[in-house]
């Protein structure tokens, strides 16, 4: 501190502080700015779970514990939660898999978060919903043919308690790992097949830009709605979730059913936005979150102009006349 105190009246002290602050800002920004390889939490293409794998009774337990307090034991809704009988299983899958349900606060819009239950429990829940709550065939079915979430390593991990010896557990872990890798490879293949299966960029682009971009933004970055609501960003959304959102219209979002935009056309749309999001940033590693002109203007002032002014300060800094 003494060192600083002694020099704080130095003619260069002010400049030094400015330069230091700028450097800190720059380094801080570089550290905080996201890079292009944002983790793509992805998606699993799977068949509908076979009836043998799901347990409706288990699903009822899940429903009664996590859903019924707002939506009622029979799913007919209450003051705090809407009637679920006609929404269809796609809506259930969308709301739960994006972590929006169960909601922490029914009065506000929920952001996307990690799913609170396991994939298994969700399958049970959907089976229970279809069997007991859903009003006939109303609403849309879960589009199992479209890639959903990627397999997670946790789902394959063996439980240590099930194994007697350390060796047996290690072996099981190894096996689980192989299993996981295989599942992941299978998932990725299905994902690529779905995305690359689209071949009409023009159609996908027009559908996205005329029906989606005005809320979710040109790259799916989201946007503001009225009354404090917002259109969520859809970078992490899986193709299946995007599809489900379109057919069920969560929150304030209007519906785009399969008659107006067929499932093949939806594939074009989803492929367009997912390909766009995966596109590397040709202009450099910092993409400013692809916010666009506001961020560019901000950077031109805070980094661009500030650095040039710092150079001007260096050039013109007072020189002690006679040293």
């Amino acid at each position: 501190m003494k060192w600083i105190t002694a020099r704080r009246r130095h003619p260069l002290a002010g400049y030094a502080v400015v330069i230091l602050a700028l450097a800190l800002f720059g380094v801080g920004y570089a550290a905080l700015a996201p890079t292009s390889d944002q983790a793509q939490a992805q998606t699993l293409a799977a068949e509908a779970p076979s009836p043998d794998d799901v347990d409706i009774a288990e699903g009822k337990t899940v429903f009664d514990q996590t859903c019924a307090s707002c939506h009622g034991l029979d799913g007919s809704g209450s003051d705090t939660g809407p009637d679920l009988r006609e929404v269809g299983s796609a809506a259930i899958d969308f709301q739960v898999s994006t972590g929006r349900m169960p909601s922490v606060n029914p009065d506000v819009q929920m952001p996307r978060r990690d799913m609170v239950m396991s994939e298994q429990d969700l399958d049970h829940l959907i089976a229970y919903y279809n069997a007991e709550i859903r009003d006939g065939e109303s609403g849309a079915d879960v589009p199992y043919g479209i890639p959903g979430s990627a397999p997670q390593p946790e789902d394959f991990e063996p439980n240590r308690a099930d194994y007697d010896s350390e060796e047996a557990f290690d072996e099981a872990e190894e096996e689980a790992h192989t299993e996981y890798e295989a599942a992941l490879a299978e998932y990725e293949a299905a994902y690529d097949e779905y995305i690359e299966g689209a071949d009409d960029t023009e159609m996908g682009m027009q559908l996205y830009l005329t029906n989606c971009a005005h809320c979710h933004g040109w790259s799916g970055g989201g946007g503001a709605l009225t009354d404090g609501r917002w259109a969520p960003e859809i970078h992490e959304a899986t193709p299946r979730e995007i599809y489900e959102a379109m057919v069920t219209g969560p929150g304030a979002m209007p519906m785009f059913n399969d008659m107006v935009i067929t499932s093949d056309e939806k594939q074009e749309l989803i492929s367009y936005v997912k390909t766009l999001q995966a596109e590397p940033n040709a202009g450099g590693i910092f993409d400013l979150e692809r916010v666009g002109q506001v961020a560019e203007g901000f950077i031109s002032w805070t980094i661009g102009l500030a650095l040039i002014v710092a150079c001007a300060i260096w050039i013109t800094a007072k020189q002690r006349a006679h040293d």
Partner: peptide
């Protein structure tokens, strides 16, 4: 529909009580 150029029937919007296009 802009993009797909498919003509729209009134019934296409039948089961989308809150549809938009």
């Amino acid at each position: 529909v802009e993009g797909t150029d498919r003509q729209i029937k009134a019934e296409d919007l039948e089961n989308a009580p809150n549809g938009m296009i």
